[in-house]
Design a protein around this nucleic acid. Structure first.
Length: 301
DNA sequence: CAGTGTCAAGGTGGA
DNA sequence: TCCACCTTGACACTG
């Protein structure tokens, strides 16, 4: 079991997702930004390593506009060495990496242009992980996409586009249940159709359930991961107390997290905490998981 | 220099 | 058919 947090570290004083306006794009501006972002990413990973936080989601903004036609810079070549260096650090310390392209990636879209742009974005995500020389256990998680008034047909479109993706994407892509459209049951059906592993999101499952209890859901989704996919990943969070539906909590709900671990024992999984205070919650969760016994310190592995 | 409107990209649902 | 909302951090403009 590894525990992690997504994209940014609030206590470190830099962001690996610095960007700029499309209107001020230049290859120079891009290089300058990517250099800073990679430097910051390396710093975050060192922080995580010191704190035994061995799971991290790399934000999609690492290389701004990478899949946009405006981006003509060969960032893979320019930054080959820093990417490889970061990858080496990740492997050396037994870390797990994920990425999560945002809402604009819709591979089951009806508009072929949207599908094309989505695939380009997936290609970018895979290129980042390839540049780091990470294997197929580094995952790219997406949602199923739109419903367009016909869920069955839309799920079939997902399967059809999925089957035609490049190998560098295919080996990494996993599908996650979302908070309003596609439930865990829908994702499991797509898995049966395509073989794609299912990343279970605990919070979305509460908001948009499909029958299974949490322990069963962890088991069912976990069974969709093959050996080459690595330990199943889970997204965990709780609702913001008093917040509107769908908002993520500001900080870890220790009691709920302990309950979650107890409920799902002895399943092994890597847990991504989608909680606003990021590394702070991850530190607390590592403490709780150590007491639970499934989480091993690096020297105990 | 602090405050704030806006930002590549999509889908949904209400008006 | 149009627009606000989803959710979020950070840019970049305003006063």
């Amino acid at each position: 079991m590894k525990i992690g947090y997504p994209c940014i570290n609030r206590s470190i004083g830099c962001s690996p997702g610095r960007t700029f306006r499309l209107s001020s794009y230049s290859d120079e501006r891009l290089e300058e930004t990517v250099r800073e972002n990679l430097r910051c990413l390396a710093e975050i990973l060192r922080f995580n390593q010191r704190e035994c936080i061995l799971f991290f989601r790399i934000g999609s903004g690492l290389v701004p506009f990478a899949s946009h036609p405006v981006c003509t810079a060969n960032w893979q070549e320019t930054f080959a060495e820093p990417f490889r260096e970061i990858g080496r650090f990740i492997r050396e310390h037994g870390m797990r990496i994920s990425m999560h392209p945002d809402q604009f990636v819709v591979i089951n879209a009806k508009d072929p242009g949207v599908v094309e742009k989505s695939v380009a974005e997936l290609r970018y995500h895979a290129a980042v992980l390839d540049a780091m020389r990470l294997d197929g256990t580094a995952k790219i998680q997406i949602h199923v996409g739109g419903v367009y008034g016909d869920k069955k047909a839309s799920m079939e479109r997902f399967a059809s586009v999925y089957s035609r993706l490049d190998e560098s994407i295919l080996r990494r892509l996993v599908v996650e249940n979302d908070d309003s459209r596609y439930t865990l049951a829908d994702c499991l059906r797509i898995h049966e159709e395509t073989g794609i592993p299912v990343l279970f999101d605990v919070f979305h499952h509460q908001v948009n359930p499909s029958g299974a209890g949490v322990a069963e859901a962890v088991e069912l989704s976990g069974a969709t991961w093959r050996a080459e996919d690595g330990i199943p990943m889970i997204d965990y969070s709780t609702p913001m107390p008093g917040g509107r539906k769908g908002r993520h909590a500001e900080s870890l709900d220790n009691a709920d997290f302990e309950r979650f671990l107890a409920e799902t024992a002895p399943a092994d999984m890597d847990i991504m905490l989608e909680i606003k205070d990021k590394e702070k919650s991850a530190l607390a969760a590592v403490g709780i998981a150590r007491r639970d016994g499934r989480f091993l310190m690096p020297r105990e592995r």
